[in-house]
């Protein structure tokens, strides 16, 4: 399996993401810099990590979404390669148009850093096949701008098409319909505010995030 983790100026979860990918897949991912013109050939998986790319200037993820590497990410995602964006990575995915909606300031105005219960809404996706639909998992969040917004029509479409992957079990940050993670129409791009890469072994406080990586990597080995 050939995976890549992209680092933007201000990313700070790129190492955690790379460690999670390596521990679970057995192979270290390629580290890609945002200024690179293109991704390496033949990638099977791309991760956009959390952090504060460009200091969250303008809007969280807005500047990173226009960085040189993103054109290549958009093209590669268009070919069906799985792309996971966590936290700032989710913000980059919405700002780049790979996922609908926007992530606004948390309703309570505060940065929230704690482990929250999530309901797995869809266990049929590339990223969630190792979970049971309707089950509750515990994953850490750490964000200021995680308040998911989309218009009612988009939200209805997301729900109708089974593209809400994870929902907060209780209101956390003001997100519309408590949405914590969504899929693109093709099902190969997942954006989520919670950090599965911070929950891959009990020593880190929990291992509920592990199955997400196992789901993707399993789908790749079967393919």
């Amino acid at each position: 399996m050939k995976a890549a983790v992209i680092t933007f100026p201000g990313s700070n979860c790129d190492r955690d993401m790379a460690v999670a990918v390596e521990k679970i897949s057995g192979k270290a991912p390629i580290r890609v810099w945002h200024g690179d013109a293109a991704l390496p050939d033949g990638l099977d998986f791309i991760a956009l990590p959390g952090g504060f790319s460009y200091g969250d200037y303008l809007r969280s993820g807005a500047m990173a979404a226009k960085s040189p590497i993103m054109q290549s990410v958009i093209e590669t995602a268009g070919r069906g390669v799985p792309v996971l964006g966590v936290c700032n990575g989710f913000q980059v995915l919405t700002e780049s148009g790979l996922l609908p909606g926007a992530l606004m300031r948390n309703i309570g105005q505060t940065y929230i850093c704690r482990t929250v219960p999530l309901v797995v809404e869809n266990s049929q996706s590339l990223f969630t096949s190792r979970y049971e639909a309707g089950s509750t998992i515990c994953i850490p969040i750490a964000h200021h701008d995680g308040n998911y917004f989309a218009d009612a029509e988009t939200l209805d479409q997301l729900e109708g098409d089974g593209r809400v992957a994870f929902r907060y079990a209780e209101p956390v940050n003001g997100s519309q319909r408590n949405i914590a993670g969504i899929l693109n129409a093709g099902g190969n791009v997942l954006g989520m505010m919670p950090h599965p890469e911070r929950a891959i072994e009990d020593e880190l406080g929990g291992s509920d995030g592990r199955a997400l990586f196992e789901s993707v990597f399993e789908s790749l080995s079967v393919a």
Partner: peptide
């Protein structure tokens, strides 16, 4: 449209 505003919100 491309950068300064996010047309979603």
């Amino acid at each position: 449209r491309k950068l300064l505003a996010n047309m979603v919100i």
